[in-house]
Amino acid sequence: MHEIYQLASGILVWVALIVFVGGTAGRLIRMAITARKKDAVIYQYFSFYYALRSILHWIIPFGSMSMRARPAMTLVAFIFHICLIITPIFLAAHVILIAESWGIGWAYLPNAVADIMTILVILGCLFFLLRRIVQRDVRYLSTPGDFVLLLVVAAPFVTGIWTYHQWSGFEIAGIVHMLSGELMLICLPFTRLFHMALFPFTRGYAGSEAGGVRRARDW
C-alpha cells in the first residue's frame, strides 16, 4: 500500500502533469505550425476582439440561441463543466497535499460544497450517458470511445467521494482515485477530452471570421 501510494502521489503526479501540460502545449504548437503552412487564413483573419466576443457569448450560460433552444442540456453542461474544473483545483485535500509537496497554497472549498459539486459531476456524467443512449442522434454519433471517456471522467469523482466518506473499501478507492485522476490528465491531450484546449481556438476563429469577415453573429 505504501509503495503504491508513494508512486501515485509522487512520480505519477509528475508524469500526469508533464504529459498533460506537455501534450496539450505540444499538440497546440504543432497545430499552430501546421496552420502556418496549410491554413494561412487563420492568421490573416484571427481577431482577438471578435474571438473574445464569440467566446464570451458561448461561456455565458444561455448566451447563444443554441443554448436557449436546449435549456436542460445547457444547465447540465455548464454545471458539469464548472464543477469538473473547480472541484479538483479547490478541494481542501488537494490544496493541502500541494501545500505539503510544493509549499504553495490557496483558498479551498468547504467540504460540504465540494461534496455537492462532486455529486453534480457524477450526475452530469450520468446525464450524458443517458443522453448517449436515449437520444437518437446522439446515440448515432456516439462511438465506444465516448463511453470510455465518460467513465474516465467519472472515475476520479466516484472514487474521490467514496474515499472521503470512508465507505467500505475506502483505502482501495483512495488509491484508484489518485490513479484515475492521473489517467484523466494523461488522456486529455490525446482523446476527445482535448476539446477543452481546442475550444478557445475553434470558437475564437469562428468568431473572428463571423465578426471580421462575415459581419454576422455566431451565437
Binding site: 497545430m31 501546421t34 496552420a35 503552412k37 443554441s66 442522434d137 446522439v138 454519433l141 465516448d146 476527445r192
Partner: peptide
Amino acid sequence: QTEGGARLEAYTKACVHCGLCSDACHHY
C-alpha cells in the same frame, strides 16, 4: 498532405458528438 491542415484536425477532433448541431440542419 497538401491541404489537410489545422482546421481539418481541429474540426474533426474538437467534436464531442453532443448532437447540438442536429436541430440546426433543415435536412435533419
